[in-house]
Amino acid sequence: MKKILALIMIAVLTLGLAACVATPPASGQTTGTSSGVIKIGIVNNPPSESGYRAANVADFERVFNEANGYKASTFYSLKNDEQLNAAQQFITDGVDYLLISAAATDGWTNVLENAKNAGIKVFLFDRMMNVDESLFEAAVVSDMAAQGRMAVQWLKEQELPEYNVVHIQGAMGSDAQIGRTTPLDDEFAKGTMNCVIQQTATWDEATAKQIVESVINSGEKFNVVYAENDGMAKGAVAALDEAGITHGVDKEVIIIGFDCNKWALRELLAGNWNLDVQCSPFQADKIDEMIKDLEAGKTLPEKIVINDETYFDARTITQEDIDKYGLGD
């Protein structure tokens, strides 16, 4: 008897959960497309994921709202299956456009085919997925390797007599880590730069500090810290400060970070760091532009659109750059 009761309970709970998952996108019902309002469904990762994502979500809220002629419904999840369900629900609701930043690259073919059959146009943003290119209109993504190349290129332009690099990596295997590591690895392989140490701090500031501390304690000399995000660069700088090693513009050690948080850019402006490479979370304007083009009957020139990204040099950065490009506050 108890077992049967337990089974019933489990069934009820599962149904309840399924209902929870399915309900959020069910808003945005028929308002009639003739009114000129464009209905879009956005599937994204939750803003709690990172500062990057918070800026990304805010950017989409800024562009896709009723003032700009959009009726947008958004669904957030870190889980691919929940995202798939939500996308399917958006298709059933009959949106005009579907904007997706997928939690995982696989498993989307079916849903995108359904969208295509329903005449719904799909845009991918931030993250690519493993599907045939015919299934989406365009993808607006970041090129992590380009970010790494930018940083390494800048470093080479400094024409230091020798490059002794402390390389602090992000979580191994992540897109950002691979993209930002490869160009520097190439230089190490060519022998143009000398790798003092290459360690992953898994994006953790405190671990980055420990790694740099151990290098300092070993007595090895270095003149570049290449940290694959701002937080780890800050950790590394904390270790340098404690050991009395100067850093920044025209100092002993060059500091390179990634992501362009506002606080990191302020460090650049103060001359404590040397370079920060942008990883842009701002894709909404580009997608807005492409949707307008499609509505006007134009065709899109390219499938893969790489985010315009840039970098900031401590010697040229201005307060305006910080206000415009900085993430967070």
Partner: peptide
Amino acid sequence: ITVCRIGLINHETLLL
């Protein structure tokens, strides 16, 4: 203490 070390709070990685 950990926050004071770096001067930053990263809720995802603090004492991970």
